[in-house]
Design a protein around this nucleic acid. Structure first.
Lengths: 224, 224
DNA sequence: TTCCGGATTGAACATGTGTTTAGTCTATGA
DNA sequence: TCATAGACTAAACACATGTTCAATCCGGAA
């Protein structure tokens, strides 16, 4: 859905180059000169358009946030975030920059990262509520905490993508990140746990319940 | 178990200050002058002891890696990584710097991060194998992938700690990270999913199995 | 005591980097 | 046609930062 680089305004080209470089190298390491050179433009023009490097970052934040907000509202995959990743699977090259940018945004402290995380949690929560009514998802007492756990588990594919593809040997060595092959390898194990659980019985859960109920202060509650 | 700052050699004081600052601000943003000042020392001395800023980073990597490797070998918590986090719960102030440093290490590309992740996965894999034989953990066909999923789910507490405590309102606003309160809030929801599963039946799992088996090439496999 | 090597410092150096500035070019509207 | 506004550049500026260097301090060995 995105036009080729030639069709974009200079401002948009600079912003897209910044999204790529900020995501790849981080905000601190990526220099204004790098961005300018990647956009085929002089450093001064970057400042001319965005006021400062921080202003450029804000523009990137808003753009990526808007970009990801438009999608995702319609689809409702129970394993959440996967609707975004699913989308990415079908257009890997097109969204790769946004994906890595979001990862950086979630790592570094930033309002954009906060907003994105909250959006994912809220969406997950809605999905759980709907699934509980439809009977496809088990009933949970604390839906909010459950949503947070599920959302985190989904997002960790994003955060740890590099390590996942590295250990699983998915995707070539050049693609340091999330690829269709990686998602295919992780889907079944994750769904199996989400379907049948990980433990054979409830003894760990019960033990944790007791430990937490009895010992509310800091202490040595060994979960297992 | 660690001596107070006064008892450490200057070299160790510099390294600990670097671990704190690299973890808090990132390698690029934290300057040699910052580290020197935090250690109460001149910038030149930092270079004198470590050769360069990169050398200082290497020293930090090795130290943190060694520090975390010594622990964890004995304890064997099924929800893994939690043995490290558990340990942290009992000495929050003492390990806080190492924790945040590891988070940065897992985000930025680094051999230390790779090694740490691989160690966690391997340990998780061992735990799963043991649990499968003992009958406490369900039998999984692909133990390796399952271990990767479980390890990632555990590590995301580390990666997303800031967001987790933010949305769950655990710990005061000054502690931007993982605290005992956060772990207490997440343990039960996570264990519940690990015990009883997330879905009520296997229809999502079966659908995904079919989709992946039939459509091996890139395509639009909507997991549901 | 004397001497030596390492710890340590303050200042300087070289470079990278965000930003400014003066000026050019180009299209558009009167 | 002319004038004006904005896109755009090249150069310069100011400052931060990694690193070097000469000099000093200090403890221990001879």
């Amino acid at each position: 859905m995105r036009s080729s680089a030639e069709d974009l305004t200079t401002r948009a080209r600079i912003r897209d180059a910044a999204i790529r470089l900020f995501g790849r190298d981080g905000f601190a390491r990526a220099t204004v000169r790098d961005v300018a050179s990647a956009a085929g433009v002089s450093p001064g023009l970057v400042i001319h358009h965005f006021g400062s490097k921080a202003g450029l970052r804000d523009a990137c934040d808003h753009h990526v946030l808007a970009q990801t907000a438009t999608q995702g509202r319609e689809k409702a995959d129970p394993v959440s975030t996967r609707q975004l990743i699913q989308d990415y699977m079908n257009h890997p090259d097109q969204y790769a920059d946004e994906i890595t940018y979001i990862r950086r945004t979630l790592s570094d402290e930033s309002e954009a990262g906060d907003a994105f995380f909250d959006a994912v949690v809220k969406q997950t929560q809605d999905i759980i509520h709907a699934g509980m009514e439809a009977g496809t998802i088990r009933k949970f007492n604390d839906v909010r905490s459950t949503a947070v756990v599920i959302a985190s588990n989904s997002l960790c594919i994003l955060m740890l993508g590099r390590h996942l593809s590295r250990t699983l040997g998915a995707a070539g060595p050049e693609s340091h990140g999330i690829g269709p092959e990686l998602l295919r390898q992780l889907t079944l194990p994750a769904l199996e746990i989400y379907t049948h659980g990980f433990y054979t019985d409830a003894r760990f859960l019960d033990a944790a319940r007791e430990a937490i109920n009895s010992n509310t202060s800091t202490g040595r509650e060994h979960a297992p």
